[in-house]
Design a protein around this nucleic acid. Structure first.
Length: 228
DNA sequence: CCAGACGTTGTT
DNA sequence: GTCTGG
DNA sequence: CCAGACGTTGTT
DNA sequence: GTCTGG
């Protein structure tokens, strides 16, 4: 799955990679957790790519209780087409979440004790960026409060991630960004081929300190390789 | 038909 | 144990 | 994902 | 809003 990630690339790099119209000024983040505001790339009505912020945790339009958002942080690519909670967003409101890397926890049973060892998974190529496939939805509370929300699609783990965890985020090929964001594509089955696990050669993984467990710890040292 | 859920992950 | 918040 | 709270009443 | 279960 994808329940924690990082985005520390300079705004200039993010802009280049995602071909954004506007300047970006972002603080680097090493520990992005659900429930917080995250950067999303969308296509506006003029076909231009725009960056925005959404709360991570999708709240469907029809929800009366926004706390459902804390459960809808991921959508399974294999079943997303059929799920009422994601159906509308998949048709009309796809987005991409820029990332410098993501965390997965490996369950390690050692002398009878169960430990969860966090790993950081990043592009194998230095300075590269990930674009996670995402869905967005705008929720309006009964009092009229507007909340932009999003979630991240997940898929089966590829060969590199599998020893750590059996799920991983959908990492789009840059050549697929346009198609994924195109609001004209309303036939969800046409999007299927984009949602495969990315090639393992594009990734590298290494263990990091359990300091990352604490969602409020956002220090750059979280990226430091740790021994297991 | 209406009522009630609508999700993923991991663990048992 | 289970839900909420970050 | 993990961490941390999880409740009501009455009083300040 | 839309699907599932009764």
């Amino acid at each position: 799955m994808c329940g924690r990630y990082a985005l520390y690339a300079p705004g200039r790099r993010i802009r280049e990679h995602f071909r954004l119209e506007d300047e970006l000024d972002l603080e680097p983040r090493y520990n992005i957790a659900p429930g917080t505001h995250v950067l999303v790339v969308r296509e506006d009505s003029d076909g231009r790519r725009r960056a925005g912020l959404c709360r991570w945790g999708l709240i469907p339009r029809w929800a009366k209780d926004p706390s459902i958002g804390s459960k809808l942080i991921n959508a399974r690519a294999e079943t997303v087409v059929a799920k009422p909670a994601f159906r509308a967003a998949l048709r009309r409101s796809r987005c991409i979440l820029p990332a410098s890397g993501f965390y997965e926890w490996k369950i390690v049973v050692e002398s009878g004790r169960t430990l969860k060892q966090p790993f950081f998974i990043r592009p194998h190529k230095d300075d590269e960026l990930f674009g996670f496939a995402g869905l967005a939805e705008c929720w309006v509370s009964p009092e009229g409060e507007i909340i932009d929300t999003c979630c991240i699609l997940t898929t089966e783990a590829n060969a590199l991630v599998k020893p750590i965890h059996d799920r991983m985020p959908v990492i789009l090929a840059p050549g697929d960004y346009d198609f994924w964001l195109d609001p004209g594509i309303q036939e969800p089955e046409a999007l299927r081929p984009l949602l495969a696990p990315c090639p393992p050669e594009q990734l590298e993984a290494y263990p990091v300190s359990p300091k990352v467990n604490s969602p409020r710890n956002d220090a750059p040292e979280l990226l430091a390789p740790a021994s297991m």
